[in-house]
């Protein structure tokens, strides 16, 4: 299946899903509205219809058409690397609150740098240990942003 057809199909499905499911159940509208155009449903419904029509139009236009493939040289293990990085992002998102920004930042930086192919300890060590602490100090001490310290709270409190 070509990419445009897939894109059109995705837009059509999202548009229909919005119009028939998400908007009716996800948007509350008062029972009595003097002018239809003022309803909280009016504008989102127009956009959902537009999205569906555009999706259908893309599908019709790209039906049975072939598209040239990307010219960028792909890594031999590209798919595995992308999936591994997405896994790293998922771990980052789920452990951020518990581990805190510094600890999780250090772990994720190390994993990402290794996955990206960096092997020099002289680069990995200062970046992974220094950057999260520096960012923490900047946001916490200078910008007054309460960055969650997580498991390193006692340690970071002393800085």
């Amino acid at each position: 299946m070509n990419k445009s057809l897939l894109a059109g199909m995705m837009m059509l499905i999202v548009g229909l899903l919005l119009f028939f499911v998400l908007i009716p159940y996800g948007i509350d509208s008062p029972k009595k509205i003097r002018y239809a155009a003022l309803s909280p449903l009016y504008y989102p419904k127009i956009v959902a219809v537009a999205l569906s029509i555009i999706g259908a139009a893309i599908m019709v236009k790209s039906w049975r058409k072939t598209e040239p493939e990307t010219l960028e040289p792909q890594h031999p293990n590209g798919k595995v690397r992308v999936l591994s990085f997405l896994l790293i992002l998922a771990i980052y998102a789920t452990t951020l609150d518990f581990l805190g920004f510094v600890a999780s930042g250090t772990v994720i930086l190390t994993a990402s740098l290794l996955l990206a192919g960096e092997r020099r300890v002289t680069v990995i060590a200062p970046v992974c240990l220094g950057l999260p602490i520096m960012l923490h100090l900047f946001f916490y001490k200078i910008a007054n942003v309460p960055i969650p310290a997580g498991i390193l709270a006692p340690l970071l409190a002393g800085l």
């Binding site: 509350d28 909280p40 956009v47 999205l51 139009a57």
Partner: peptide
């Protein structure tokens, strides 16, 4: 067409939040 579809996604995402006139959930 893809650009217009992309814009429709953007418009829809901007709808999320409280309704400005009635204060209902969107």
């Amino acid at each position: 067409l893809k650009g217009l579809g992309s814009a429709a996604f953007g418009l829809m995402l901007a709808v999320v939040g409280l309704d400005l006139v009635y204060g209902t959930n969107r």
